[in-house]
Write a protein that binds this DNA or RNA. Structure first.
Length: 570
RNA sequence: CGGGAUGUAGCUCAGUUUGGUAGAGCGCACGGUUCGGGACCGUGAGGUCGCAGGUUCAAGUCCUGUCAUCCCGACCA
């Protein structure tokens, strides 16, 4: 490919709206252009990268027996009503009507349509397992699209769905995908970490997310640095052992303390001169399952996802001042479990262990001292509600957990029978009994992976593509295209590399060398071949983008030198 | 959806306070000189100032509405 015949519209100045590195560099280097908020055109360079990532994904899916299909992006609303998600999915779902007024949506995911598909053709256990996947545009009307390709409203995903006869079969499919994901992201040249993930209030049991470690990541990961342990989870899922009171105490009689204007845990601790571990925070939540109070220790933070799972709620929101006054009879800051009616109490394990703690008294300017769970209030439910922080002990080995930010590029998920039950997907087993199919789903954000690669591989000059997904692996730069010797040598180098199957771009533009060097660094070709002052001696300069190291090679040795360098890079 | 900000040339921005003929740099086209890290000189093209109303002799500038985009938060089976 020749630069004069190829659209690589690099910009000298960075478009103002771009904040994170991948967004900024992809715009500046001419890979993407924005069409609407969260909607982008992939230019020729980005499209080449995309195809490479897709090829890797496709090879690894096929290797595990995945069969590729194309599913409709426009999906009938009827199917979503059947699964119950037409109402649950909310405004994230892009909805539309056809000319007859029938409801449709743009698929944000494809469980419904694929379950329906398989239902039509699956009869016998002999047909199982089935692994089907598609790589297509998906649509989610995000409240706030951001960071360029990292969180768009239109994006490309690979989704594979597994259909098995039982849990044991699902376990095999799950493991296959888990291994395949390792290979996919390794081959893409990414540093990543699989972590235990929350599977949501509805749906199955086990889930892992694959995180590309990068500062711009929106997800927070906690992991154990101790090697053989290897515990890692995203912050919603992360656990840490509950602590018990150090010194045993006898329960003391309940008493009221006057605490004028002391609303926060900080206020109360300093006012009463006590540790926050002695306080119990009572947080009121309004949910689709009713009103709940969550109790955590004063020095802890509530993990809303854990609360949501504990009570099986889909939506949950902290109660406002109005509700708090109505329910507790007191202003915000004095809520407590003692004498609280009409609200289910969800109690963190740590709180259940506490003796003689401080809580709000459900009246203005007052707290209770010597509150004891079980004695002074009824504990409706005990569970883990704590948000884990960096430094908290690992649930497996007790060593302090480390924290990192990550970009979620893939998730593997045991769905179980959620969709097969809702959609009536069954088969007959060898005894002629009708059984529910056990499903799994496995997604990879392809466009997000592209952006994540840039996030992880760039420097102050531009992108530094891993060789396996670079748009071109080599750029040949003649310093002066009007110099006959240079032009001819560059042409020869280009022909030889092309013939050897190397993906090479010849920068034959009549630009000054500085411009071409800057562009080469910006676009991020792993290798650059400069044809310049040593052209007369038949020598070309081979330079590695990542390290900046360079050396002179004669034309005859060029292909070998390039291939060995690419070998190192992979 | 709450908070903040911005819409003027392809890009980055000035001009808005105090209403009076639309600006700069980069990029682009043409000519010339240059040619190993975003050259220089000259000439030129390019804008219904986001959109719609209103005030005024006169609106990029003032008023009202509206749309779009970005950032923070909330949200993210």
């Amino acid at each position: 490919m020749r630069a004069t015949e190829y659209l690589i519209p690099t910009l000298r100045e960075t478009p103002a709206e771009a904040e994170v590195a991948s967004h900024r560099l992809l715009l500046k280097a001419g890979f993407i252009r924005q069409s609407a908020s969260g909607v982008y055109t992939l230019m020729p360079l980005a499209h080449r990268v995309l195809l490479k990532i897709i090829n890797i994904v496709r090879e690894e899916m096929n290797r595990e027996g995945g069969q590729e299909i194309l599913l409709p992006i426009i999906q009938p609303g009827e199917l979503w009503l059947k699964s119950g998600r037409w109402d649950v999915y909310g405004p994230e779902l892009f909805r539309l009507k056809d000319r007859h007024g029938r409801d449709f949506c743009l698929g944000p995911t494809h469980e419904e349509i694929i379950t329906e598909l398989v239902r039509g053709d699956l009869r016998s256990y002999k047909q199982l397992p089935i692994l089907l996947y598609q790589i297509q545009n998906k649509y989610r009307d995000e409240r706030r699209p951001r960071f360029g390709l990292l969180r768009g409203r239109e994006f490309i995903m690979k989704d594979l769905y597994s259909f098995d006869r039982d849990e044991a079969g699902l376990e095999i499919s799950y493991r296959k995908m888990y291994e395949a994901y390792h290979r996919v992201f390794s081959r893409c040249g990414l540093k990543f970490r699989p972590v235990e993930a929350d599977s949501g209030p509805i749906g199955g049991s086990v889930s892992h997310e694959f995180m590309v470690l990068a500062g711009a990541g929106e997800a927070i990961v906690l992991y154990c640095q101790h090697d053989p342990c290897g515990y890692a989870a995203n912050v919603e899922k992360a656990k840490s052992p509950a602590t018990r009171p150090q010194t045993p105490e006898d329960p003391q009689p309940l008493e009221v303390v006057h605490t004028p204007g002391q609303r926060t845990v900080e206020d109360v601790t300093s006012y009463l001169g006590i540790d926050p571990e002695r306080i119990v925070k009572t947080l009121l939540y309004e949910t689709d399952r009713g009103l709940f109070a969550a109790l955590v220790r004063g020095d802890r933070e509530l993990n809303e996802v854990k609360l949501q799972n504990a009570i099986g709620a889909v939506h949950l929101e902290m109660a406002g001042a109005e509700t708090i006054r109505r329910v507790t009879g007191a202003p915000v800051g004095f809520t407590g479990p003692v004498g609280l009616h009409g609200v289910e109490l969800v109690v963190d394990e740590e709180v259940a262990n506490m003796v003689n703690c401080i809580t709000g008294a459900n009246q203005a300017d007052a707290h209770y001292r010597n509150v004891n769970p079980g004695r002074d209030f009824k504990v409706d439910r005990i569970t883990d509600l704590r948000l884990v922080h960096e430094g908290d002990p690992c649930p497996h080995c007790g060593r302090p957990l480390a924290m990192a930010r990550g970009i979620e590029v893939g998730q593997v998920f045991k769905l179980g029978t959620k969709y097969s039950e809702a959609m009536g997907l069954t088969y007959l087993d060898e005894h002629g009994a009708e059984k529910l199919v056990v499903m799994g789903c496995y997604g990879i954000g392809v466009t997000r992976t592209l952006a994540a690669a840039v996030e992880q591989h760039h420097d102050e000059h531009g992108i530094v593509w891993p060789a396996a997904i670079a748009p071109f692996t080599v750029v040949v730069v003649p310093v002066n295209v009007r110099d006959e010797v240079q032009a001819t040598l560059a042409e020869q180098a280009y022909e030889m590399l092309s013939a050897a199957g190397v993906e090479v771009l010849l920068d034959d533009r009549a630009e000054r060398p500085g411009v071409k060097f800057k562009d080469a660094d910006l676009v991020g070709y792993p290798l650059r071949i400069t044809v310049g002052k040593t052209a007369g001696e038949g020598l070309l300069e081979l330079r590695v983008r990542r390290t900046g190291e360079s050396r002179l090679v004669p034309l005859a040795d060029l292909v070998g030198a390039v291939q060995s360098l690419l070998g190192d890079d992979r």
